Amino acid sequence: MSTGDGGPGLRVAVVGGGVVGLTCALELARAGHRVEVHAADPWEATTSAVAAAIWFPYRAAPTDAVLRWGAGSLGVLTRLAADPETGVRMLPGTFVHRTADPDLWWTPGVPGVRPAVPGELPAGAPAGTRCTLPVVDTGRYLPWLAAECAAAGVVPVPGRVAALDEVAGDVVVVAAGLASGALLGDDSGVAVQGQVVRLADPGLAEWVLDQDGPAGLTYVVPRGRDVVVGGTAVEGATGLDPDPGVEAAILERACALVPALRGQPVLSRAVGLRPGRPTVRLERLEVGGRPVVACYGHGGAGVTLSWGCATEVAAEVAAVAGGRRAAASASSSQA
């Protein structure tokens, strides 16, 4: 195999089997590296599987890098929406505003952004911003992504990694969400608990996101076969059992925004722990004499940033490969 520029591919161990880890693995394999993914849980047990997964850089920083990574992912997801097998669809929707000067920092690079007109606003919403964004059905997208990895030659290795010296490889990519910090001596991460309930879809054609509602965060994301309704963002909470009282409050808020949801049966419910961090960590370092690329702390934006971050992870690994070729060439010429 080659890295695409004539050099041999490296053996790369990716730690983490959620959306960020799998996307990094796929990009690395496509670049010609020999890739193994070490996953503590199957995809359906990851935080990624709980996400409503609309493209939106929620609780992610720093702004400049997030916009760059988000733009990269937006382009890829928009293209993937042309293939129904991926589980990605482009849907219009409304971001509700409850202040006179909303912060639209996330909109650069998003096409078709405009103010909502009164007839487009959900019940009780004073103002809003309209745009069309990718909505990712993770129940279809994650198995599609895993199948793409398998087709590219990525080897799955089940089991939890407790220390980086447990995995072999020329380079290690740490993309294990909340478990990443412990592998790199970084205690800056924090769980941000999110609870959702999935209802039968009454035929909704648009999503709604209301971050500043007086009763709490609310989002309604239709996926055709169901509607993901949320949510919460409880920093530091680590429980994974759905709270019936919290669910009732979520449903009341959602039904106030989208009355068509009233009476729809509950299909499933879930709680996930977003990997919060003051900033996303994406950098190359050395651990135990071996290059390691950190890629974690994506908050509520794992899907949103996945492809953009994977591109930069692949560039970091390519730099390692290039450095090794240069060193080998220098050694050969001296001999």
Rank of each mutant, 00 (worst) to 15 (best):
S2W: 08
T23L: 07
R30M: 07
H33F: 14
V35F: 08
H38Y: 15
E44W: 15
A51G: 08
A51L: 07
I54V: 13
Y58T: 07
Y58N: 03
A60R: 06
T63E: 15
S73P: 02
S73W: 03
S73H: 03
E85W: 05
V88G: 03
T94Y: 02
H97I: 03
W105M: 10
A116D: 15
P122M: 06
T132M: 08
R140N: 00
C149D: 11
A151E: 13
P158W: 05
L164F: 11
L164E: 08
A168I: 01
V171E: 04
A176T: 06
L184P: 03
G185R: 13
D187G: 09
D187S: 15
V197C: 05
R198T: 01
A200I: 06
P202F: 13
V208N: 04
D212L: 10
V220L: 08
V227N: 10
V229R: 01
P244F: 06
E252Q: 11
C255R: 13
A256L: 06
L261Y: 15
V271S: 00
G272R: 03
R274F: 00
R274V: 00
P275G: 08
P278N: 10
L282A: 02
L285A: 10
G288Y: 04
R290V: 02
V293L: 04
G299T: 04
V303K: 05
W307T: 06
V313A: 09
V320R: 10
A321E: 13
R325W: 15
S331R: 15
